[in-house]
Design a protein around this nucleic acid. Structure first.
Length: 918
RNA sequence: GGGCGCGUAGCUCAGUUGGUUAGAGCGCUACGUUGACAUCGUAGAGGUCACAGGUUCGAAUCCUGUCGCGCCCA
């Protein structure tokens, strides 16, 4: 048991072996029979599947540490605790990776063709795809690796097929031509969520469109009535003014719209306007969605390049004119002069041409949000395109209700509102992507015009029997398959035992960024296909940022590699560091320029645990240890105290975990372990564990120490699993009780041992106050640390001084006091009154400067009286005593009594001091 | 433009139904070779809780406004 442990924790020497032992012990695996046959209550988390090509970053580190803490805790509570791991095929992201590789070889995806390209992606995935999961093992993630899934696995493809076809049959999936978000670089449609708005300092240009001569009279009338947007060009033609942030789109304008009852322009409705540079004439129409207050109150309508304009066109019958190509160059419908130009080039050219014709009315600074592709960051172009969509409104209903009625809870709570707001305003989801990597859309087209939507690949047309079927070339949005994750991982649509045992799951741990992308959609799919929400609690943790508050990212180069942290400081250090910062609703900030500073605290804590364990193991030796219950009568004050504190720590930790207050749990246990077990308990029992101690008291200390460490290691295990398990395995075990197979499955501590004892805690606190006071006075007067001193103690609660005398050995150990007198003492010395009213005198002839002692005591009296005055004033206020709850008033009275006692005794001592000196 | 949130010690942040002498870690200062640990110990300094009003016996905590800073959705 006590083979030499290194004085410093070396995580590399223990972590990999521990992990292997857990895996080999089968502790991570949970079969369905654990629930279905053994009747254990399940606890299920499905991992937010990282992109298959990703390398672990700190965001994953945080996300998976949180999940592992919860999983380990529930496992210790006896739940059939299952954490399902896996990866996501990540359509665009992965395809981009491979395309970049090809580009380095001077190739494009078309050079390979679809089949070869997809093969190449599979090869890449096969080679590097598992990396991130291996990395998760290094941070201690206790996933059930036997259940590892990939969103493109065969049975997950079956789930996707089933869902697509089923939604199609229910008329919840449809195909149509609408304005979608288009990435001109990825050459694919995107969902609204995938087009990320970015605040941009741009311009708003005001353009003049000449009116046809037939409308001159109406224009003159409007102008005369004060419509500033109407005016006359130098050649006498009337014009109107419209504004845009994307001037190049004006080439596709097919109308100008005004608010129907806008008196300024009512005479112009139906008039014709010339689109400059094109020579086309377009009509002025009325539409109620025009905001008459914004700008001139007239808007140019470009139905093929703007969502709102598309809708206006739908209502007013305006033409659709697409003037761009898929890669956002000006296309065949644009005037020849601009054809082939990139959209931003065209923007400049259009502005220059308008300027030359005197049709540019002005440019205004304009901050607005510009959508960017969430994968490649190219500016997204709204574009008219035929795509597949999901009708979301009907799906959203039960998912919205689940939040409203509390079936699903959100932590932090304010996300509930955000979620509901989104659900209430949900829009249809564009799910087709013009990519090659992903779930192919299960739709086939026959030359006869028939469209076949099928679960199994058709061989012939169901209508004409023809075999020249063409499958839809597009694939599905990645999130279409990940939204099925909570049940697809269990084999659905097959009716599996796994599904029965583990659906629905319990906690979803993720980042707020993917609340809509993923979490909301999982909930909708859960209701639609399983009739139940996929989990009951959504815990949204913060974002990992650098010291300047910037999100850690590859492109900024401010990331920290978790593998490097594990290598240098250990997984325990990384875990403690992130969890101790994991306050509900706040981000994690780590210094990427000083990784040492960022993780030293965690490393030091793990080392502290290691050394406390090392000391305990050395002190305990190999002799049998009796159960603490069997020697209850022999326990010393500090034994009872630490057992009482232990129950408090267990209550706090359990409560905190229950409510996702992870940083409170981490810091609470840190304080308990370091501040109470190490700083006090271990120091207090050192002499009792020594060879010269009385056997009964030594056995009491040994039994207590074993219990305290056993239980403390259990409490700490979910956060710092490695160091605790390593030490726990070496801990001697009390006679008469069975030792669990591993700390990982040792039952989670409860507080039903009956050790909680307020009286013991108060008495211990009195003793601690005495020691701290003596230490402070020694420091105050520069008494060398090694020098033994005596003290005199009077007053205080009954038996206080006697109990201190009885603890003399400990007192000497902790404060270098080797004599305790139970009188007032005499001579020159330092004076204090403890909170419990005991008077302390430390004779320090020759050391004490009497003047200094007097001013020090005066300061102390002042401090006490300051607090006293505040409390007395409160009690003298009838409104306070009348309105405040009785226990608050009583607390105030107790405080006054204690402060008054302390202050008056100190004043008396002060008077004595002055009398004595003179 | 709409919605949500944040300004507490030099730094990063806790502080959950209003009641403590406002806390932690890091950093800083002083002292320390007490055989678990210097990745340590002991002690200390450091805060008008952004600002201005209000509600209340009582406000870091609730309300209103101002200033500064984020995030989400248009």
């Amino acid at each position: 048991m006590t083979d030499e442990l290194a004085p410093r924790l070396d995580p590399r020497a223990i972590e990999p072996a521990r992990y292997r032992a857990w895996q080999e012990g089968g502790y991570f695996h949970v079969p369905a029979s654990a629930v279905l046959e053994d009747g254990r209550e399940p606890y299920v988390i499905v991992i937010p599947p990282p992109n298959v090509t990703a390398a672990l970053h700190m965001g994953h580190g945080l996300n998976n540490t949180v999940q592992d803490v919860l999983i380990r805790w529930r496992r210790m509570q006896g739940r059939a605790s299952l954490w399902v791991p896996g990866t996501d095929h990540a359509g665009i992201a992965t395809q981009n990776v491979i395309e970049r590789q090809l580009a380095e070889e001077g190739l494009r995806r078309d050079d390979l063709g679809r089949e070869k390209f997809v093969e190449r992606v599979w090869e890449f995935v096969a080679e590097t795809g598992g990396t991130i999961l291996e990395q998760l093992k290094a941070i201690g993630a206790s996933c059930d690796w036997d259940r590892t899934r990939f969103t493109l696995d065969e049975d997950l493809q079956a789930a996707v097929r089933e869902v697509f076809v089923s939604l199609y049959e229910k008329d919840l999936i449809y195909r149509g031509e609408y304005i979608i978000n288009w990435c001109p670089r990825c050459l694919t449609a995107l969902s609204n969520e995938e087009a990320e708005g970015e605040e941009t300092e741009g311009s708003l240009w005001h353009l003049r469109y000449p009116l046809s001569s037939a409308s001159a009279e109406a224009a003159a009338t409007a102008s005369g009535a004060g419509a500033e947007a109407i005016g006359q060009l130098s050649d006498g033609r009337w014009y109107l003014t419209v504004s845009t942030t994307r001037p190049e789109t004006m080439l596709g304008d097919t109308g100008v719209a005004v608010y129907p009852s806008d008196a300024r322009y009512s005479g112009l409705i139906g008039a014709q306007v010339e689109v400059p540079l094109t020579g086309r004439l377009i009509p002025i129409v009325a539409d109620r969605h025009v905001d008459p207050e914004f700008g001139s109150g007239m808007v140019k309508v470009t139905p093929a390049h703007d969502k709102n304009d598309f809708e206006i066109a739908g209502r007013t019958g305006l033409e659709l004119l697409d003037v761009m190509t898929p890669d956002a160059r000006m296309g065949d419908h644009a005037p020849e002069a601009f054809r082939g130009m990139d959209r931003f080039e065209a923007r400049k050219a259009v502005l220059a041409a308008l300027e030359a014709e005197g049709l540019l009315a002005g440019e205004q600074h304009h901050a607005h949000s510009v959508p960017h592709c969430y994968r490649c960051h190219t500016v997204v172009e709204p574009r008219l395109s035929e795509q597949w969509f999901v009708s979301m409104k009907p799906l959203a209903e039960p998912a919205l209700a689940a939040s409203q009625d509390g079936t699903i809870t959100f932590t932090p709570g304010h996300w509930k509102k955000v979620y509901e707001h989104w659900m209430e305003n949900i829009q249809d989801w564009c799910i087709s992507r013009q990519l090659w990597w992903g779930h192919r859309i299960p739709v086939w087209y026959c030359p006869c015009g028939e469209r076949i939507v099928a679960r199994v690949d058709p061989t012939a047309c169901s209508k004409c029997g023809g075999v020249a079927l063409e499958q839809d070339p597009d694939v599905l949005d990645t999130w279409f398959s990940s939204q099925l994750w909570p049940f697809s991982v269990f084999g659905w649509p097959k009716e599996s035992d796994d599904l029965k045992a583990f659906y629905p799951g319990h906690t979803m741990v993720t980042a707020p960024e993917i609340l809509f992308f993923w979490v909301a959609r999982m909930i909708m799919m859960g209701y639609e296909f399983q009739g139940k929400a996929p989990f009951t609690e959504v815990y949204l943790h913060g974002t990992v940022r650098d010291i300047h508050g910037r999100k850690m990212s590859k492109s900024l180069g401010n990331g920290i590699d978790p593998m490097r942290v594990v290598e240098e400081f250990g997984a325990d250090a990384m875990r403690y560091t992130v969890i101790s910062q994991c306050a509900v609703g706040t981000d994690i900030s780590l210094d990427h320029e000083d990784v040492e500073a960022a993780f030293a605290n965690g490393r030091n804590f793990a080392n502290k645990i290691w050394n406390a364990g090392r000391f305990a193991l050395m002190s305990l030796g190999d002799a049998p240890v009796r159960s603490v219950e069997s020697i209850r009568g022999d326990l010393a004050l500090e034994d009872e105290w630490i057992l009482s504190r232990l129950e408090g720590a267990a209550i706090d930790a359990t409560r905190g975990l229950d409510r996702f207050r992870l940083h409170e749990v981490a810091e609470g246990l840190y304080h308990f372990f370091w501040g109470e077990i190490c700083d006090w308990y271990l120091e207090l029992v050192k002499t009792r564990l020594g060879p010269n101690a009385d056997p009964a008291t030594r056995e009491a200390a040994r039994s207590t120490l074993v219990v305290v460490l056993d239980q403390a290691f259990r409490l700490l295990h979910p956060i710092v699993p490695f160091v605790t398990a390593e030490l726990w395995a070496r801990l001697p075990w009390p006679e008469g009780s069975e030792r669990p197979g591993d700390l990982i499955v040792a039952p989670w501590p409860t507080a039903d041992g009956g050790w909680k004892n307020d009286d013991v805690e108060r008495r211990m606190s009195d003793f601690q106050n005495l020691i701290v006071e003596v230490r402070r006075l020694r420091k105050e007067y520069g008494v060398p640390d090694a020098r033994r001193i005596g003290v005199d103690l009077t007053g205080g609660p009954d038996g206080f001084a006697d109990s201190v005398v009885a603890q003399l050995a400990v007192f000497e150990q902790l404060a270098r006091v080797d004599r305790v007198g139970t009188g007032h003492g005499s001579g020159v010395g330092a004076n204090a009154v403890l909170p419990n009213g005991a008077e302390l005198f430390i004779p320090l002839e020759g050391v004490i400067d009497v003047e200094r002692e007097r001013s020090r005591m005066l300061e102390e009296v002042d401090r006490l009286e300051g607090h006293l005055r505040g409390a007395v004033a409160r009690l003298n206020n009838d409104k306070f005593t009348g309105n405040a709850p009785a226990d608050v008033v009583q607390k105030e009275r107790d405080k006054v009594a204690q402060l008054d006692d302390q202050a008056s005794k100190l004043r008396a001592k002060l008077a004595g001091l002055e009398g004595g000196v003179r």
